[in-house]
Design a protein around this nucleic acid. Structure first.
Lengths: 219, 219
DNA sequence: CCACAACCGGCAGGAAGTTGCCAAAGGGTG
DNA sequence: CACCCTTTGGCAACTTCCTGCCGGTTGTGG
């Protein structure tokens, strides 16, 4: 794919990476927005399964900004991963607002994550300056309104500790009163924890929360 | 693994299949119970990606009985697959009761599906006659109380048609009244459909239904 | 020792969801 | 055309959940 005004639509992260690896390799400024760690797996894993590849550390003169939803902090594993990514030099923030999952390379190319069909996700690679500018504005706005990873993490630590048991009880289908007793909490407190989980998952209903929790691998 | 009184615990369907392929190849009677089509993928796919391998068709003197939960019939793809499996000679029934996911080979070996940890599921391979007998009794009881695939499918056809839209609306987090209007239904009728979906998914709460729907790939 | 902050849990009002009941409508059959 | 069956949808009673309020408890700092 040559870098022209054409828009390319590819299916699957393998193909996406095949087409854009050179852009990642050359990029000096990367912005990334994702709902969870499953998005952009290949682009993140390329080059190394443990380092935040393909993006080298900050000392190579590259600026990397990543923004996520609070749900990623409900899992100890993904929290640990993000902490490592941050320690490696990337700037990571958490936003409670909506995110359009996207990557912006050098303020010149935008990659938008689309729908999943038949288990394969589609991506649009767009070098159009107008589109890039618009998406970049949205990213910058989200970035400004987001909270640094470490700060948000401190606030979520206790919820994260309790989250597995609450989610397990929710997934068991039992009523709040039963679940509260199982945890040794009052119903009001249990419902407070549930409300916090729903907020972290960005869910407006319990059904939606169940879907999100499963997607994030929390249940 | 030799066929002795020892119990083997393996992790991952690849390893399970590696250890039991010879048993499957030689088996003349197979009983299989699963919550969805993701369980026993490898054992089902071995030999062919399209035929109900590794189990040859009925004409080879082998009897195959499979029992599933109603949730599998909410997806056109898995319904089509099960119809093909049934047409190929396997007996398929649907039960609204609980299932312990298991395979029984020649009434001599039981394979129990265990928990999933770190994305990998554990399986127990048990040749103990007492255990086999007990699990077989449970299977036979579930089999007797189950409904033939074709009969259950006929009852589920309309719900399956509507299911994607209802599940999409549930996953969007909107209220029942909003969702009902979006579908051109009365709230009572929409709630009737939702109740039927929860029953098909075997869920006692909407959160549980959300998790199950995501697991089944319905949202 | 006291003031203050944070959290818990009981209570309660309101919202949302669950399910039964029943009248109305539509379709099929004789 | 009459009858029967099925489904819909409105209504309502009830359950479950959501969230605010408030008193009590605990911990901390001055």
């Amino acid at each position: 794919m040559e870098l022209t005004s054409q828009v390319a639509v590819v299916r699957g992260e393998e193909e996406l990476f095949a087409r854009t690896a050179h852009l990642f390799a050359a990029a000096t400024e990367v912005c990334c927005a994702a709902n969870d760690l499953n998005t952009w797996v290949r682009t993140r894993a390329a080059g190394s399964t443990t380092a935040p590849a393909p993006l080298p550390a900050r000392t190579s003169g590259r600026r990397v900004r990543k923004i996520y939803r609070p749900g990623v902090l409900l899992s100890p594993a993904s929290t640990r991963h993000l902490t490592e990514v941050s320690a490696a030099g990337a700037e990571v923030r958490i936003t409670s607002g909506e995110i359009n999952e996207t990557i912006i390379l050098d303020r010149r190319v935008v990659i938008l994550a689309g729908d999943t069909a038949a288990g394969t996700r589609s991506y649009s690679v767009i070098p159009l300056p107008e589109v890039v500018q618009g998406v970049l504005s949205l990213f910058e706005a989200a970035w400004r309104g987001a909270t640094d990873l470490a700060v948000y993490d401190a606030q979520t630590a206790e919820l994260r500790q309790l989250a597995p048991r609450v989610l397990e009880l929710l997934a068991s289908g039992c009523k709040d009163e039963t679940a509260a007793r199982a945890l040794g909490l009052g119903v009001r407190t249990y419902r407070r924890r549930v409300a916090e989980l729903l907020a972290a998952l960005g869910a407006d209903s319990r059904f939606q929360a169940g879907v999100r929790a499963r997607e994030l691998g929390l249940v």
